[in-house]
Computed example of a mutant assay.
Amino acid sequence: MARLVLPNYPPHVVQRGHNKQVVFADAADFENYLAKLRELKQALAVKVYAFCLTTNHVHLLLDPGDDPTALAKLMKVLGARTTRYRNRLEGRTGTLWESRYRSSIVQNGTHLLACTRYIELNPIRARMVAHPRNYPWSSFNTRFDTTPGADWLDEVPCFESAGLVPDEKRARYATLIEQGVPTSEIQLIRDALQRGQLTSNSVFVYEIEKITGLRITNRGRGRPW
């Protein structure tokens, strides 16, 4: 099934290590990946709304901007550089990642915020930490870092257009985090990724169908649109 990527529509991307192998073994590995992500974000004009890295997979919430091919370019270069880095450390050759990353276009507004929260609460669901502030490899702490230049994330569009000052945005988002992710949201996000469909409501599905000329409906797991 062809991956759906459209200009200025953000996808939630998940990439896993091949056969669930370790991708990040220590702090230097995580830092190396994030440094490359930040570099490629600037070079390709891709927006980064959220991220979470675990030992064997990554979650990214990105926006390719006006050039939809920028997403594939970023993932290809980022994956290749991480593979070379890991192979040099271990004196090995071969693949590091699964051959195909998963992606799901996310509707702006509540769905985009829900996906951001889902990504940053991933370490909580995995019982790795008690609060996202205790996990150093997600975008949560970056989002709340007020040190000049430290917060390199892009503003989630619905917050950007709300006319709130930065402290108000952080307070509102902190409240969303404390509420946790409802089971219905978790299921919607996971199903959309599994099927390569949309994280959205039915109105948005219709909008994308009109744009693409494709039939995009929720069907059984693994079946085409």
Results as ranks from 00 to 15, higher is better:
Ile124Arg: 03
Asn134Tyr: 10
Lys169Gln: 13
His18Thr: 02
Ile177Arg: 02
Asn32Gln: 13
Thr110Gly: 14
Phe204Thr: 05
Arg88Tyr: 12
Leu214Thr: 04
Val14Tyr: 09
Asp63Ala: 01
Leu61Trp: 08
Asn134Gln: 15
Ser138Cys: 10
Leu37Glu: 11
Pro132His: 01
Ile189Lys: 08
Glu178Lys: 00
Gly94Thr: 04
Arg221Cys: 10
Leu78Thr: 05
Trp225Lys: 10
Asn56Trp: 00
Ser99Glu: 11
Arg223Glu: 15
Glu90Thr: 14
Asn32Val: 04
Gln21Arg: 12
Asn122Trp: 01
Arg88Cys: 00
Ile119Asn: 08
Ala192Tyr: 00
Ile186Asp: 03
Ala80Gln: 15
Cys158Asp: 14
Ser161Ala: 08
Thr95Gly: 13
Pro123Gly: 12
Thr217Ser: 13
Val129Pro: 00
Tyr33Ile: 01
Phe144Asn: 11
Lys169Glu: 15
Trp137Thr: 01
Val106His: 03
Ala162Lys: 08
Arg16Pro: 09
Pro68Gln: 05
Glu185Thr: 14
Asn218Thr: 12
Gln187Glu: 15
Asp63Ser: 02
Gly220Trp: 10
Arg125Asn: 02
Glu168Phe: 01
Phe140Leu: 05
Ala25Glu: 14
Pro10Arg: 06
Ala45Pro: 03
Leu96Ser: 08
Leu121Cys: 05
Lys210Arg: 15
Ala174Pro: 09
Val106Pro: 10
Phe144His: 14
Gly220Ala: 13
Leu176Asn: 08
Pro182Asp: 12
Tyr173Met: 02
Arg38Lys: 14
Asn134Trp: 07
Ala43Thr: 02
Leu176Gly: 11
Lys36Ala: 11
Asn108Arg: 15
Val203Gly: 00
Glu185Arg: 15
Cys115Lys: 04
Ile186Phe: 09
Met75Thr: 04
Cys52Val: 06
Val77Arg: 15
Val77Leu: 11
Thr199Gly: 07
Gly91Val: 01
Tyr101Val: 07
Leu4Glu: 03
Asn108Ile: 00
Arg219Pro: 05
Ala35Lys: 09
Arg117Phe: 08
Pro10Ala: 04
Val203Met: 09
Leu164Ile: 09
Arg88Val: 00
Phe204Gln: 06
Ala2Tyr: 12
Leu78Asn: 12
Asp67Lys: 01
Lys169Ser: 06
Gly163Met: 11
Arg86Thr: 04
Ser184Leu: 12
Gln179Arg: 12
Gly180Glu: 11
Gln15Tyr: 02
Leu6Cys: 06
Arg223Tyr: 12
Ile105Lys: 11
Arg215Ile: 10
Asn201Ala: 05
Gly163Tyr: 00
Val106Arg: 03
Gly17Asp: 02
Gln187Asp: 09
Ala72Gly: 12
Val129Asn: 00
Val5Pro: 03
Ser99Leu: 08
Trp97Gly: 02
Ile177Gly: 06
Ser161Tyr: 06
Pro11Met: 01
Leu60Ser: 01
Arg92Gly: 10
Thr82Asp: 07
Leu62Pro: 01
Leu62Asn: 07
Arg92Leu: 10
Asp145Cys: 11
Glu185Lys: 14
Lys41Gln: 15
Pro68His: 03
Glu207Arg: 15
Pro64Gln: 04
Ala25His: 14
Asp145Thr: 07
Arg143Asn: 10
